[in-house]
Design a protein around this nucleic acid. Sequence first.
DNA 1: GATGAAATCCGAGTCAC
DNA 2: GTGACTCGGATTTCATC
Lengths: 154, 154
Amino acid sequence: MPNDLDRIDLKMLRLLQNNGRLSNAELAQLVDVSAATCHRRTQRLFDDGYIKSVRAMVEPRKVDRGALVMVGVVLDRSTPESFDAFEKAVAKLNFVLDCNLVAGDFDYFLKIRVGDMADFNRIHGTQLIALPGVRQTRTFFVMKEVVDNAPLNF
Amino acid sequence: MPNDLDRIDLKMLRLLQNNGRLSNAELAQLVDVSAATCHRRTQRLFDDGYIKSVRAMVEPRKVDRGALVMVGVVLDRSTPESFDAFEKAVAKLNFVLDCNLVAGDFDYFLKIRVGDMADFNRIHGTQLIALPGVRQTRTFFVMKEVVDNAPLNF
DNA sequence: GATGAAATCCGAGTCAC
DNA sequence: GTGACTCGGATTTCATC
């Protein structure tokens, strides 16, 4: 749908998404333009917000964050203030990777990474149920990560 | 837990996670070692698998993937073959960002990105319920992304 | 084993066109 | 958009601890 990106821009985006370490020279070769052009186009992809950031993907198990847990949350009340308070509080919890307001049986879904189940139980008891307006939570321990954070397809 | 990483390595990991475009020279200054040492250490973080990859984070809305959906899946049978078939099939679906086998009311949770709800309904009708062994799915449309793919805290 | 200084080399970034 | 130029950083070597 993005008609302000031509075929070359799209290819650059896909290549950089899969390998953010590509040098400008390498990328230029891969998309068959000069290094100068490639440099300007890449600049534009950043400046115009197509690329939000470039991140090193750290292996969770190597830094003691091998346990993944999904948590469904239901709030006491469905008022804007209630949602707002919850969201502000959850944004400060650095073990929360995703937090999404959803339509359905839950109000929010959280994706959480911790060291192990004991870690999670401690966090659940102290930090999650203590979040403002939480009526109940439902925990789904992840037993196997089949696909984790796959690159965007476009 | 990672006692093979010293304070400098951990700092490098955190910095690179937040900004994968840092030059070796910049990183060296930030962690206060020489460029040569920094280069060697960074190399090791890659070689030993601490950093899986470096990725440009593409803004989903800019490439027509602005709709996020969580889907809970229940399979017909809970046999290893059944799980295996499902996992192999789901890994081929490029709109699936996450797929996790969980303990609880569902067998799997999927995180899916598409252009809009119409896209999702088409995909749901043709590709999701057609996955091997699917008994039922429950869809949670994301109405607001509060936290999306936060960096790992360690 | 580790490091940092120095030397080389290559690419980023900028220029004119 | 390309090609050329310059300068700084990446990468290697090497001495040192």
